[in-house]
Protein backbone atom coordinates (compact mmCIF):
# COMPACT_ATOMS: atom_id res chain seq x y z
CA UNK A 1 0.00 0.00 0.00
CA UNK A 2 1.25 3.43 -0.84
CA UNK A 3 1.10 6.87 0.70
CA UNK A 4 -1.41 9.40 -0.53
CA UNK A 5 -0.18 12.94 -1.16
CA UNK A 6 -2.58 15.87 -1.53
CA UNK A 7 -1.09 18.49 -3.83
CA UNK A 8 -1.97 22.20 -3.56
CA UNK A 9 -3.05 24.15 -6.65
CA UNK A 10 0.27 25.94 -6.95
CA UNK A 11 2.20 22.66 -7.28
CA UNK A 12 -0.24 20.91 -9.61
CA UNK A 13 1.66 21.98 -12.72
CA UNK A 14 4.24 19.42 -11.57
CA UNK A 15 1.68 16.62 -11.18
CA UNK A 16 -0.15 17.14 -14.48
CA UNK A 17 -2.96 18.82 -12.52
CA UNK A 18 -3.57 15.83 -10.28
CA UNK A 19 -4.90 16.82 -6.89
CA UNK A 20 -3.96 13.54 -5.21
CA UNK A 21 -0.97 11.37 -6.12
CA UNK A 22 0.63 8.39 -4.43
CA UNK A 23 4.19 7.65 -3.48
CA UNK A 24 6.20 5.45 -1.12
CA UNK A 25 8.71 5.95 1.68
CA UNK A 26 9.18 5.16 5.35
CA UNK A 27 9.95 8.77 6.29
CA UNK A 28 8.72 12.09 4.97
CA UNK A 29 12.20 12.70 3.61
CA UNK A 30 12.06 9.49 1.54
CA UNK A 31 8.54 10.24 0.36
CA UNK A 32 9.57 13.69 -0.88
CA UNK A 33 12.61 12.22 -2.62
CA UNK A 34 10.41 9.63 -4.33
CA UNK A 35 7.85 12.26 -5.23
CA UNK A 36 10.68 14.24 -6.82
CA UNK A 37 11.57 11.25 -9.01
CA UNK A 38 7.95 10.78 -10.07
CA UNK A 39 7.33 14.50 -10.59
CA UNK A 40 10.60 16.28 -11.36
CA UNK A 41 10.90 19.75 -9.85
CA UNK A 42 8.42 19.29 -7.03
CA UNK A 43 10.94 18.37 -4.31
CA UNK A 44 12.83 21.62 -4.85
CA UNK A 45 9.61 23.52 -4.16
CA UNK A 46 9.28 21.79 -0.79
CA UNK A 47 12.88 21.80 0.40
CA UNK A 48 15.54 24.39 0.92
CA UNK A 49 19.05 23.58 2.15
CA UNK A 50 17.90 20.11 3.09
CA UNK A 51 14.99 21.23 5.27
CA UNK A 52 11.30 21.90 4.68
CA UNK A 53 10.71 25.41 3.42
CA UNK A 54 9.45 27.76 6.08
CA UNK A 55 6.31 28.75 4.17
CA UNK A 56 5.25 25.30 3.09
CA UNK A 57 3.08 23.43 5.59
CA UNK A 58 3.20 19.64 5.50
CA UNK A 59 0.85 17.45 7.48
CA UNK A 60 0.91 13.69 7.97
CA UNK A 61 -2.57 12.43 8.79
CA UNK A 62 -3.57 15.99 9.72
CA UNK A 63 -0.59 16.42 12.08
CA UNK A 64 1.73 19.34 11.33
CA UNK A 65 5.10 17.65 10.80
CA UNK A 66 6.94 20.53 12.47
CA UNK A 67 5.77 18.98 15.73
CA UNK A 68 6.33 15.37 14.77
CA UNK A 69 9.89 15.10 13.52
CA UNK A 70 9.79 17.26 10.37
CA UNK A 71 11.52 15.39 7.51
CA UNK A 72 12.23 12.44 9.81
CA UNK A 73 8.51 11.91 10.48
CA UNK A 74 7.78 8.21 10.15
CA UNK A 75 5.36 7.03 7.47
CA UNK A 76 3.54 3.77 7.06
CA UNK A 77 1.50 2.47 4.16
CA UNK A 78 -1.92 4.08 4.07
CA UNK A 79 -0.74 7.35 5.59
CA UNK A 80 -1.81 10.59 3.99
CA UNK A 81 0.40 13.64 3.41
CA UNK A 82 -1.17 17.05 2.83
CA UNK A 83 0.92 19.91 1.46
CA UNK A 84 -0.40 23.47 1.83
CA UNK A 85 1.42 26.69 1.09
CA UNK A 86 1.29 29.02 4.08
CA UNK A 87 -1.12 31.91 3.75
CA UNK A 88 1.23 34.63 4.89
CA UNK A 89 2.76 37.93 3.97
CA UNK A 90 3.82 41.27 5.28
Amino acid sequence: MSIEVRIPTILRPFTKDQKVVSTTGSTLSEAIANLGVQYPGIAERLLENGALRRFINVYVNDEDVRFSGALESALKPGDSITILPAVAGG
Binding site: N57, Y59, D62, D64, R66, L84, A86, A88, G89
Partner: peptide, 19 residues
Protein backbone atom coordinates in the same frame (compact mmCIF):
# COMPACT_ATOMS: atom_id res chain seq x y z
CA UNK B 1 2.00 36.18 13.79
CA UNK B 2 0.18 38.84 15.90
CA UNK B 3 2.31 41.45 14.20
CA UNK B 4 1.87 44.92 12.71
CA UNK B 5 4.13 43.95 9.81
CA UNK B 6 3.32 40.29 9.14
CA UNK B 7 0.38 37.92 8.95
CA UNK B 8 0.16 34.17 8.80
CA UNK B 9 -2.77 31.79 9.15
CA UNK B 10 -2.08 29.32 11.93
CA UNK B 11 -1.06 26.03 10.22
CA UNK B 12 -3.74 24.12 12.15
CA UNK B 13 -6.42 26.63 11.15
CA UNK B 14 -5.18 26.49 7.56
CA UNK B 15 -5.61 22.72 7.39
CA UNK B 16 -9.05 22.95 9.02
CA UNK B 17 -10.03 25.61 6.48
CA UNK B 18 -9.01 23.43 3.52
CA UNK B 19 -10.81 20.39 4.98
Amino acid sequence: AHSPTFYEFDPKDLLALYR
